[in-house]
Design a protein around this nucleic acid. Structure first.
Lengths: 329, 329
DNA sequence: TTGTAGGCGTTATCAC
DNA sequence: GTGATAACGCCTACAA
């Protein structure tokens, strides 16, 4: 910048004014400066600007595991949204590990980012709460419902309910949930079913293990012991694909004997045969809401209100949970 | 920092020395300062440090599309590697678009990152070359073989050869390549096959479209017209899964009538039924080599040598390309 | 409209 | 060993 000032024979602040479009500058000088800047492909030093201005134009992004394509997709969208307002993102992975998460937050503090979007490892632990408080940076939790800070998340309970009603409607009379008990999807799933299936307890099993052999044995036992149609709900598509493969190996027809529903609605749903029903979360919406809320907080630090923004998911039904066998024309 | 100096009754530069472990400081003062820093959970302002020191401890990462899980995986590994040396990463997506790539590079320049890892949109175009030159930052190209700059990439030609030989060995007598002609995998695949199959031209088709209907028709026609075993090689797992689904829909047994091989060896390979053979690129190795090379260049700016680092992939054979039908016990 | 002066939070280079 | 002092590149007054 000083260099440009020297070359154009004006003072450095004048160059600054021109480049920032501030105030009024002599049109002639403006042109001269702009030309020179273009010629040298001048890019202002954001670091210096940050130091002087106190805004870094950086957003910190902390994921649990960006190699999970669901988060990868979010990162892309968040970056896009941030870019619209001139922000760049600095990205971290906590690997579902508290200590790493803390390390990430420390580094984030060192960089004096203007805001933070985080997928917490343990969203409602006291540890996390106090860490976020001591951080004291505008922040939004993504994907998880938090009590003590702003959050944008998909309503898993409601989504689980959708899946429960769907599978019931497809004529299923026994059910399998693949995932953990603590999952909101499980809660919503079972709640919805209980309304229609009085003796649900005897008709529902839950599979938590990831061990293929164990899953295989459990499913075989299940299907040997019942003749009706079974509705299977897996907590994500990855899991659903695994179940799908195991069912094929066991010779259980989908959707003939088992209706299968996944979660995340990833590309694989269309590629699998039969097409995998899945619950679509609108990542675009989540990313947009998270960033816009964050920017608002950055610009209005006085506003300490905590906003919880649940986003409704929607079930995309495909052949894997169709009531009738599709024709293969 | 000044604050800590005030609280501990020493000068600010002294605090700096303590915190950086520089030089010799009075042990007593050292302890006092460290204690105070810990108490206030002091994190040095990297921005200011960058301005003064001229190192930002930032690496720029430019991907074509991080929502592709292959790149997402790389991002995670790159970040891990960078972190080992105290670097953080600032992440961009070019979306396979020249202009966006240029925008990313501009922003990267503004942040005065110490180094850059980039997956180029068009690795050997003149445009890209000149952009990288004018950037004038230590940089390494990832995934693509570049002539004018350092690169770390998987040897696709060699990998394609492995697949060709494998499918031939499995007893295939006709072949399908799914992907573009310009792909190194195609080159290696056909070269290897040509050595063993004299009339390859009549036994090989290539599918480039992503349209499921078109693919389906092409494959149906192919299998109606030949009775032997067909080897199918898809340029990535995503594509392979699609083909896999279409084959199932057509009632073509895998690996009975068709042997299928994908590329990237993603999680899905184990989950699919039958398990999908695939080529594993060592992302760990790529990430580690890219970062270590980059750090070396950062520390030795005088070294202008260009190093090309091809990495060998390896074929992971699973049931989808097994010579014999597996037993379903 | 433009230039001068001071400061952002560090590091580095001096004297003391 | 330690404390002044001058950068680093920019922004924001304020003065001209």
């Amino acid at each position: 910048m000083t260099e440009i000032a020297r070359l154009t024979g004006v003072s450095q602040p004048t160059v600054s004014r021109v480049l920032n479009g501030n105030q009024a500058v002599n049109p002639e000088i403006r042109e001269r400066v702009l030309a020179c800047a273009r010629e040298h492909n001048f890019q202002p030093n954001v670091i210096a600007r940050s130091l002087a201005g106190s805004k870094t134009m950086l957003l910190g992004l902390v994921f649990t595991d960006i190699s999970n394509s669901f988060f990868a997709d979010l990162e892309k969208l968040l970056e896009q949204e941030a870019k619209k307002s001139g922000y760049s993102v600095i990205v971290f992975n906590s690997d579902y590990d508290w200590n790493r998460e803390k390390e990430c937050l420390d580094v984030i503090r060192r960089y004096r980012v203007d805001g933070l979007v985080i997928v917490p490892v343990e969203e409602n632990s006291e540890k996390f709460r106090s860490q976020m408080e001591s951080l004291d940076i505008p922040a939004v939790a993504l994907t998880r419902k938090t009590e003590h800070m702003d959050c944008v998340y998909v309503d898993h309970v409601e989504a689980g309910g959708q899946v429960g009603r769907h599978l019931y409607t497809q004529g299923c009379d026994s059910y399998v949930f693949v995932g953990t008990e603590k999952d909101g999807k499980y809660e919503g799933f079972t709640e919805a079913l209980r309304e229609m299936v009085p003796d649900l307890e005897t008709r529902l099993i839950r599979i938590e293990t990831k061990n293929p052999g164990e899953i295989r044995r459990t499913l075989r036992r299940h299907f040997e012991g019942c003749s009706g149609k079974t509705g299977i709900f897996a907590y994500n598509d990855r899991r659903a694909v695994q179940i799908h493969g195991i069912l094929q190996g066991l010779g259980i027809e989908v959707p003939g004997r088992a209706c299968l529903v996944g979660f995340d609605n990833t590309y694989i749903c269309d590629y699998l045969y039969p097409g995998l029903s899945s619950v679509a979360q609108s990542n675009e919406e989540m990313a947009a809401k998270a960033v816009s809320r964050l920017l608002w907080k950055i610009e209005h630090p006085e506003d300490t209100e905590i906003i919880k923004e649940p986003i409704r998911a929607r079930l995309i039904a495909r052949q894997s949970s169709a009531a009738v066998e599709e024709d293969k024309s």
